[in-house]
Nucleic acid binder design. Structure first.
Lengths: 134, 134
DNA sequence: TGAATAGTTGAGCGCATATTCAAATAATAT
DNA sequence: ATATTATTTGAATATGCGCTCAACTATTCA
């Protein structure tokens, strides 16, 4: 069969290059794994959470100090910290009624740094001529 | 002044440790930079886009082959590719009416891999006892 | 005990966004 | 020219989510 002849797969989706599709299917992440992975990036995809990471990089802080440093509501910060806690991005210890939050592991900072790397790269190539496909 | 005395900053947010807050403010990302960085993670935070990255890792594919491999609508895939194109995650070349998409640079794959690393780590520590702060 | 303080939590609002559907564009084939 | 094919695009719908507000818990202080 020629590769330009159209094929329908079980889910009724036409394709042009059946062999390429077959191989692509093999190496494709399954939806479950992709969803798991997406959650990690999802937690990192909020400006507030990134700013929290940036100020926790050097050590622990209590909730209202974080709120104060970011000029945000304690409630808003607490909601974010809960999200970050569940994603194991931060941990906390309690001292009386004060909760001191800190980063959970260095993996977080690695991702953070790698993200910044990508940022400087894409900005550099963006400020260059590279207008490309709009 | 004692550090347990509450202070209000310009934006009227109480804090407990004024010096810590002062330092935190200095090293905090500004909202603009945080938003820029968040966009990078944001693009990586969708299962469909991650699956597209996973099948483009080995080479280019046309739109309907991608759709076929993922059992998705061509339209849905095209929308995602547009998003990825604007974020400079993918590029494409046209051959007649067929558009072949490929990853734009290795930074994307680096982030992708780092994400997977983080995933295996946090899953490992999750399947361990580490129930921790819920 | 009662008041103040640090933090959490749930409901609700507004906004962003992934997918679907239908229509449009552009290239090829008849 | 007309039809078919590959892809794009805009509108509409549905879902998810960040922040606010108010209420609540827990700890400290008087």
């Amino acid at each position: 069969m020629r590769s330009t002849i159209h094929q329908k797969d079980v889910c009724d989706v036409a394709c042009i290059h059946p062999e390429a599709v077959e191989q692509a299917k093999k190496r494709a992440m399954d939806s479950l794994a992709a969803t798991d992975l997406s959650r990690i990036f999802q937690v990192m995809s909020d400006p507030t959470r990134l700013r929290i990471i940036s100020i926790l990089a050097d050590g622990e802080l209590c909730v209202c100090d974080i709120a104060s440093a970011l000029s945000m509501t304690v409630s808003a910060v607490s909601h974010q910290l809960r999200t970050m806690r569940m994603a194991q991005l931060v941990k906390y210890r309690k001292e009386g009624r004060i909760a001191f939050y800190s980063l959970d592991d260095e993996h977080v900072l690695k991702l953070f740094t790698q993200g910044l790397d990508h940022l400087s790269h894409s900005q550099a190539s963006h400020t260059a001529i590279k207008k490309r496909n709009r």
